[in-house]
Write a protein that binds this DNA or RNA. Structure first.
Length: 633
RNA sequence: GCUCCUAUAGCUCAGCUGGCAGAGCGCUUCACUCGUAAUGAAGAGGCCAGCGGUUCGAAUCCGCUUAGGAGCUCCA
């Protein structure tokens, strides 16, 4: 007997029986429950069946939901093993995440590396025991009794927070029972390949006022081969780490003498300058004007802006002539002064006032991360002052600018919209207007976004652009934030057509976010092998022996005359050695020159990542390669 | 800031249960004048992150500090 499902998948007899049986057990109140993992003979792929109300769907490990189900079950496997080895440990929560799963435990002594190996061993045993993973429900009273009998205080807290009428569901495998909404795979035997990766601290319910629990992270796959590939992929990704490449490629470093304060070397500065030049070009095109405001300003400015009261622990302060001063953590107050410097007409708006501003913030030391999170960075800021009816178009304009820049670098990114938080200022009408403007802008641009309800700044809602690093961690770079607070605090105005004074609406926005963070992303994105327009050294000339150094010098001059960033390696080293070294520095173009080339007035061109050689003249090189390169600009 | 882990030559790392500080790369010098990813030889280079403790004796064990890493929290 076979059953045909909605998506035309075929189930075999015993699987179908199981579907029928389990479907009966599912309570109507349950959103969905996993019915089990089966191996489809034809597709040879691990599959699960999910009942979504009445609809039966089949998902596989390839689906995002399939992965989450699988990893969630792996987290239960982890918890079961931990409870067997350490019965005194209390369980907190154990969800699937984007790349694996974790489980939070409350344990007096932290887990050591060896403990992880023991736990993995116990997990393997449980897999071999082939325990069915069973679903059941309890009335609130019984659920509380069960969890308190097991001393699971955290689970009790979770149950108590569930709404009165909600179904309280559990999953059971062997002796192990866990409060859980599911779904899960149906038997521990499917969890064939897993690895516990790390131990970390994490606050209970993500609140730093709560107790810090011990979190174990892990990853699991249906097949050993997939696990191996995944772990290899991580190792490869680590080679692209911008901190490692920053050192290897001589771009930047961070000395112990200045934690969080990066030091850029010449090649890093070239990259920064290229980013800045491109930025200026794009902003000019989009009709921005540029200003520059001081790094240090007095206390009264920061009191007006509110930073002195609300942001003080992140600010570096000093005393000059007995007066308090602060080093700016943000550029906006300076921008407000620049706007206020003269009266504005409604005809002047929108004013798009850009500033590459160096800001300093006293970030917590544990938050620092290479160039991604530093204490001193350059924001590619701009403040747009506009009339009410210009808001949506200005937002769209900024979105288009950000897209233009990110596309140039082929970046993968996603958008997040954060709306009004509980603690906020300003009247509801302004919030309505602002949120509507952001939403409309995104709808008009037809972009997907993640909605973070209640996650906006206290002064206004925002759109954030998140970019991925080599390990898939995302970093907020671009942001568009509406702000009602500062125009009021600084009493900004413009003269409207009826000669009345009106308050402009302001938005803050950054495209790169910070030059430093963006550069970090950029380094990891290209793995240090920058496209030729960005490479700090574009061409390296390698004479085969010192007899050809003279010829190399003439080539250097010729290329420099065409504004190519060029170096030559005049050392008495073998050509193979020079090529290897230049290759490790990921220089896009190597020009090898010896007797043959000198006689013909050519070079032997070798492109990064290729072993082929092209013999051509500098003139041809400039006309083909370099023209191509700048055509992409 | 919190939890766990880490710190040995410029870089990457070895150094077992405490007993004279090691390698490769890089650097310097010499020889080779070289044809597409490492020429050979010699040499210099270390208060084993810092401070304290245990010990006859500490790179090694313990504590504190500093810095780094994985997360959490917070943020561009």
């Amino acid at each position: 007997m076979k059953i045909q499902l909605k998506d035309n998948s075929i189930l075999h007899y015993d699987e179908a029986i199981r579907v029928g049986q389990l479907a009966q057990d599912i309570s109507p109140g349950l959103g969905r429950a996993a019915l089990g993992a089966v191996v489809n003979d034809e597709i040879k792929d691990l599959r699960y069946m999910i009942v979504d109300d009445a609809e039966v769907r089949i998902i596989t490990f390839k689906d995002d939901l399939g992965k989450r189900v699988f990893w969630h079950s792996a987290s239960h496997l982890l918890a079961q093993a931990v409870k067997r080895l350490y019965p005194e440990v209390k369980l907190a929560i154990g969800p699937a995440i984007n790349n694996g799963f974790y489980y939070d435990f409350d344990k007096d002594e932290p887990f050591s590396h060896d403990d992880l190996l023991d736990i993995e061993g116990e997990m393997k045993k449980i897999v071999q025991e082939k325990l069915d993973i069973e679903y059941f429900e309890l009335a609130r009273k019984d659920a509380i009794q069960l969890m308190s009998s097991q001393g699971e205080d955290y689970k009790l807290e979770l149950i108590n927070d569930l709404p009165e009428d909600s179904v309280i569901s559990f999953y059971k495998q062997g002796e192990f029972v866990d409060l859980c909404a599911g779904p899960h795979i149906n038997n521990t035997k499917e969890l064939k390949a897993f690895k516990l990766q790390s131990v970390a601290g994490a606050y209970w319910r993500g609140d730093e006022k709560n107790k810090m629990l011990t979190r174990i992270y892990g990853i699991a796959f249906p097949k050993q081969k997939e696990l191996k590939e995944h772990l290899e992929h991580i190792e490869e990704a680590k080679k692209r780490d911008h901190r490692k490449l920053g050192k290897e490629l001589d771009l930047f470093t961070i000395f112990d003498e200045g934690p969080g304060f990066p030091v850029f070397f010449n090649k890093g500065i070239i990259l920064k300058d290229l980013l800045i030049n491109y930025w200026k070009q794009v902003h000019k095109k989009h009709n921005y004007v540029e200003v520059s405001t001081p790094i240090i300003m007095n206390r009264s400015l920061w009191e007006t802006s509110g930073h002195w009261d609300y942001y003080k622990e992140n600010m570096y302060t000093t005393v000059i002539d007995d007066e308090d001063f602060a080093i700016k953590p943000m550029n906006c107050p300076g921008g407000m002064l620049a706007y206020k410097n003269k009266k504005h007409s409604y005809k002047d708006l929108p004013i798009r006032m850009a500033e590459l501003g160096l800001v300093h913030r006293h970030e917590m030391k544990g938050a620092l991360h290479g160039l991604m999170r530093v204490r001193s960075f350059t924001q590619d800021d701009a403040h747009i002052f506009m009339r009410r009816e210009q808001v949506k178009d200005e937002i769209i304009g900024v979105m288009e600018l950000i897209e233009e820049v990110y596309q140039k670098f082929d970046f993968k990114y996603h958008l997040e919209l954060s709306t009004r938080p509980e603690k906020r200022i300003g009247d509801e009408g302004d919030w309505d207007l602002a949120e509507a403007a952001l939403k409309e802008a995104m709808e008009e641009k037809d972009v997907d976004y993640v909605l973070n309800e209640g996650d906006g700044a206290f002064y206004g809602p925002k759109i954030d652009y998140h970019l991925e690093d080599s390990l898939g961690r995302t970093w907020q770079c671009g942001t568009i934030q509406l702000d009602f607070q500062l125009p009021i605090r600084f009493d900004l105005d413009y003269v409207d057509s009826d000669n009345s004074l009106k308050r402009p609406i302001m938005l803050h926005r950054v495209v790169y976010g910070s030059i430093e963070r963006f550069l970090g992303i950029l380094i990891e994105h290209f793995g240090g092998a920058f496209p030729s327009w960005l490479a700090p050294v574009q061409v390296k000339i390698l004479p085969v022996s010192s007899a050809f150094n003279k010829y190399a010098e003439t080539l250097v001059e010729e290329l420099e005359g065409s504004d190519i960033r060029v170096e030559a390696d005049y050392r008495d080293e073998r050509i193979g050695y020079k090529i290897r070294e230049a290759g490790l520095m990921k220089i896009p173009y190597l020009m090898i020159v010896g007797e043959k080339e000198e006689n013909k007035g050519t070079v032997s061109l070798r492109k990064h990542g290729e072993t082929k050689n092209y013999e051509l003249s500098i003139k041809d090189f400039l006309e083909t390669e370099i023209n191509n390169m700048y055509r992409r600009l």
